[in-house]
Design a protein around this nucleic acid. Structure first.
Lengths: 148, 148
DNA sequence: GTAGTTGCAAAAAATTTGCACGGAC
DNA sequence: GTCCGTGCAAATTTTTTGCAACTAC
């Protein structure tokens, strides 16, 4: 709950010499409000506010925000990226049935393992694929799957 | 060191009703001998033994072996998959400078975290990106990077 | 012999780039 | 006013698919 707000991020953009455009503010807000969307999904939501926006702008903005460490891409087992605002590191529990993503904190033992190898950690990507509790409870709903 | 051998994998293929073709044996051997290659790299190595092999066969075989849980795809921060034979779960330490990948065991705390959420784990993908020890030691060699 | 596999080429999906116009500063 | 950022379309990159020929069983 103590994460960056859009305002923080906008000032981070500005202080790195980048311009604050309506497209960037919009996309930032969308990524902030909906974690784990892919580029297409972000694009479609953005079009509701700004119908003429281009998919290329979405990709270019994502690249920019990644370089500024404001957002990060994660691999949720499909063959395209999903994006979220960068906050504390966490583990994604990705349900293969309903596609939901739950975030849980990263055990300190993981960073300790890297330290033991004298590996200087820049970023982490932890995904656990399986079945979430509610899908385990009602196995029949499997066909409602959001993704493949 | 107590991992599956090609022979084990071939019998696993056979017992699932799939045919053992020279292409499949070759690709399996390549993935076994070189972890973390991408499809293109596997394809190029395969061509040395079997020049007429098609890239589509590589992708189809990778999909097949993934479905049989013989290999797994991992995201090493590029925009395409990398493949390795499935053995015990491990964490990949991916060096952004030289591209090397070191495997370390998964701390039990991680599985415990999933269990607490009553999440049924099927597979895990743990990548830590950063700088490996030898690249930290000699920072000048950065231009030797294998990837991007 | 037959059904599963292959190679090729074309298609689809995901992402990047070139360029002229437009807007943030 | 200047330069960065945008939209559009085309290009690239990565992966999948259709189909006729082939081969493991």
């Amino acid at each position: 709950m103590n994460d960056l707000t859009s305002l923080d991020m906008v000032s981070r953009l500005r202080s790195s010499g980048k311009r604050i455009t309506p497209e960037r503010k919009l996309l930032l807000r969308i990524i902030e409000q909906h974690a784990h969307l892919d580029a297409e999904e972000i694009y479609r939501i953005a079009q509701r506010d700004r119908p003429q926006i281009g998919l290329a702008t979405v990709y270019r903005t994502l690249t920019l925000l990644k370089n500024l460490d404001i957002v990060r891409a994660t691999d949720l087992g499909e063959n395209h990226g999903h994006y979220e605002v960068r906050s504390e590191e966490h583990v994604h529990l990705v349900c293969s049935i309903c596609g939901c993503v739950t975030d849980v904190p990263v055990p300190s033992a993981l960073r300790a393992a890297a330290k033991k190898e004298q590996f200087a950690v820049q970023s982490t990507h932890f995904e656990i694929f399986g079945t979430c509790r509610s899908c385990s409870d009602k196995p029949s709903t499997a066909s409602e799957a959001k993704r493949g």
